[in-house]
């Protein structure tokens, strides 16, 4: 523990700016994965533990697209679209068979899929870790801002993810599709009675979740190493985020992600050896005080 360092950081603008942006960077990428987890749970009541593998696939799809085209934006889109399609197949072929089963049965299906995908990645892309490399346009010196340091690439990531978050919010709250999805979350049989194909709605939620996770994988690829099993740490964190923010709430996922980002960035200064424990502790406290999460509806 190093509370003195934490105190001095909180009083210095440069440290405050740098650590806050660093919390934003960690949080926003986490948000893209967590939002999918949260949406899928909110609408389908399915705990998609395989979401980390979606993220991994996104990164690998993007990697292949980047090797083929050399264009980062094409790569990111390929990651998102590829995993979106995969998400649809995943839902139709596997998940749709365990709707309404025990939570543990769903976890078991996800566990099987995680094991399979890790090996598939190993067989297709090789056992060695891959590094994407920073696209040329982002190979610049970091920006100095109020004494803090912000890399150009991270600035780009924050802006893009904020735009995605905004679009997602609009989609859920303002469009007809969003209304159907929200209705399906509350009363699926009513939606079905209105002549809407619920299977299609459910599939589309997985497409959306997969798209977001794939985009996250592709966007982050230049600063990650690509290996089989890279989804694990991400999925654990995104579940913490989802629980803290409230399952099913996109706004909650955003708040939870930023909270975790800030806990990690300031925790690394104050409690360098216990940041992970801190996250689990935060989740436990939220569950005890308000089990439905910060933005969740009471069950």
């Amino acid at each position: 523990m190093d509370l003195a360092a934490l105190a001095s950081c909180l009083t210095a603008t440069s440290c405050l700016v740098t650590q806050t942006t660093s919390g934003f960077i960690i949080g926003m990428l986490l948000f893209l994965v967590a939002a999918g987890v949260s949406l899928i749970f909110g609408v389908l009541k399915v705990v998609n533990f395989a979401h980390g593998s979606f993220y991994m696939l996104g990164a690998y799809f993007a990697y292949t697209a980047y090797v083929l085209t050399g264009n980062y934006f094409v790569a990111v889109v390929a990651g998102g679209v590829g995993v979106g399609i995969f998400g649809y197949l995943f839902e139709r072929v596997l998940v749709s068979r365990v709707y309404g089963s025990a939570v543990l049965m769903q976890l078991l299906v996800c566990y099987g899929v995680i094991l399979i995908l890790d090996d598939v990645v190993k067989i297709v892309w090789g056992a060695e870790f891959k590094s994407f490399g920073m696209p040329d346009m982002f190979q610049q010196l970091p920006i100095l801002f109020a004494g803090g340091v912000v890399p150009v690439f991270y600035l780009f990531l924050i802006i893009v993810t904020l735009i995605i978050a905004g679009l997602l919010g609009l989609l859920i709250t303002k469009t007809r599709y969003g209304k159907i999805v929200r209705a399906a979350a509350v009363n699926p049989s009513m939606v079905s009675a209105l002549g809407i194909n619920t299977g299609l709605v459910y599939g589309s939620v997985f497409v959306l979740g997969g798209l977001l996770a794939g985009l996250a994988g592709g966007l982050a690829a230049p600063v990650r190493s690509l290996t089989a099993g890279m989804g694990l740490s991400v999925v654990v964190e995104s579940f913490i985020v989802t629980v803290i923010g409230g399952m099913g709430s996109v706004a909650g996922a955003l708040a939870g992600s930023l909270l975790i980002g800030l806990v990690r960035s300031f925790g690394s200064i104050g409690f360098p050896l216990f940041t992970e424990g801190l996250m689990f502790l935060l989740m436990a406290v939220v569950l005890v005080v308000k089990p439905s999460g910060l933005f969740g509806r009471e069950a």
Binding site: V109, Y111, G112, D119
Partner: peptide
């Protein structure tokens, strides 16, 4: 993982 995962899915 590939084999065990497939068996898990078959069971589930």
């Amino acid at each position: 993982g590939l084999i065990l995962g497939s068996i898990i899915l078959l069971f589930a």
